[in-house]
Write a protein that binds this DNA or RNA. Structure first.
Lengths: 228, 228
DNA sequence: ACCCGGATATGATAATTATCATGACATGAC
DNA sequence: GTCATGTCATGATAATTATCATATCCGGGT
């Protein structure tokens, strides 16, 4: 039993450090399970009963919903230290979205029951979780509003900036999404995502080498995202 | 001091009933303040510091964001017993949306500090709030995804059904939104909302008398919302 | 009563976006 | 290696939606 929880960056642990004594720490950690997933693997299936409280330890995953017609909409992308099971985790018995791995990923799963009883005992932890949930929900909602009011070029620009500044912290990175997935994220068609990327390339804003994207002119991209 | 909290339907009180002893009930209720607003009045201004935990006692309000350019986007509509200050209330110090009254409304405001200290003491209350927040955030996010994938007719149909089945519980009601606000809610232009309503009227789906809407053919409307 | 501003309404046109068609290219199965 | 499948790519066209122009209607203020 390792009360330091073994995952060094673990945000959950950060929460615990502020609040939990050794005993409670052990309760959580003794039930902790890590799970590995390969790129493309499904981590959570819509409609499944929620059993774990889980967050992403490494990799990248998408949260999405799929139509009866088969079309998918990506709700958000979770990166390491984001919760995988945050939405609806404390409300319903079932996931109302699916999760799958965009890259090889490792999740950290805690027993829902342990978390519940901990919150029950420890109000400070509850406040932290409430705060965190507020932020996550807010972010998703506000981003969705932002995207909705943009035109195609603005949406693609927004997405590229998002990856560059929020996920990878560099101007050159491998796109973790296919063009189809990018389209599903920002609500447009695959063809138009491709076309828009081509335009950006022709305009010298991007350099594209297969899956690798290099943002050559961040200022232009930003201005397209905001105004164009 | 009235520990029964005077607002009979109060959902918050429902939460409390399960969890709070008389003493805690009094803490909350002694700090409780009701505020009245006239139609059109602004209840919360984006960027303001969050001071209260408040919910709607009666009336109807809209939560919305406004651009630098002046355009507004409606995030959601809160009806009695919905929280007015739910989003971001536990996370940031400032509201990132505005709230204004669509009808004459009364809010019930509790002191943030009281709620915090209560949660701190009472884990069961925290679990209830986490559950409620999950549900609210989920609903907003999923509705926004639903709306996004529909065409104009589908969006307007969706909105009308929403009012009919979720807010007013009748097929004939007074629209609490102007056409402009309807447009801001579902992400389309005012002209197209008007046009679409006219089409519905011509098709015999709606009867429109000024602000009063009567849904004459709910089946058609539903099928337009889902498929058309 | 009148005027005024905003909301409602409708048409014509322009802009945006989706759909359909086609082909190149890559990658994994065999 | 070849084949097959899916992604990437681009053009032509159709559909959808926004913009602009204009007119009517209605309620509040004087």
């Amino acid at each position: 039993m390792d009360p330091s929880c073994s995952c060094e960056l673990c945000e959950l642990r950060e929460l615990f450090v502020q609040n939990l004594d050794e005993e409670n720490m052990e309760i959580i950690c003794s039930g902790k399970v890590e799970k590995e997933y390969r790129t493309g693997e499904i981590i959570v299936k819509e409609g499944t009963r929620i059993q774990d409280f889980s967050y992403l330890k490494s990799g990248l995953v998408k949260l999405y919903r799929s139509d009866p017609s088969g079309r998918e909409q990506i709700i958000t992308i979770a990166k390491p230290m984001d919760y995988v099971s945050l939405l609806s985790v404390f409300s319903d018995k079932k996931y109302n979205y699916s999760v799958s791995a965009l890259e090889d990923s490792v999740t950290c799963n805690l027993k829902m029951e342990d978390i519940r009883s901990l919150i029950h005992k420890d109000g400070k932890l509850a406040l932290n979780l409430l705060g965190k949930m507020s932020r996550v929900a807010d972010t998703i909602i506000l981003e969705s509003l932002e995207i909705r009011k943009k035109h195609l070029r603005g949406r693609v620009a927004y997405l590229l900036i998002y990856f560059s500044e929020t996920v990878f912290y560099t101007k050159e990175f491998d796109l973790p999404l296919t063009r189809k997935e990018m389209a599903e994220y920002v609500g447009m068609t695959t063809e138009n995502v491709i076309r828009t990327l081509s335009e950006f390339r022709k305009d010298g804003i991007l350099k594209i080498y297969g899956k690798t994207i290099q943002i050559a002119n961040m200022d232009s991209l930003r201005s397209i995202s905001e105004f164009g």
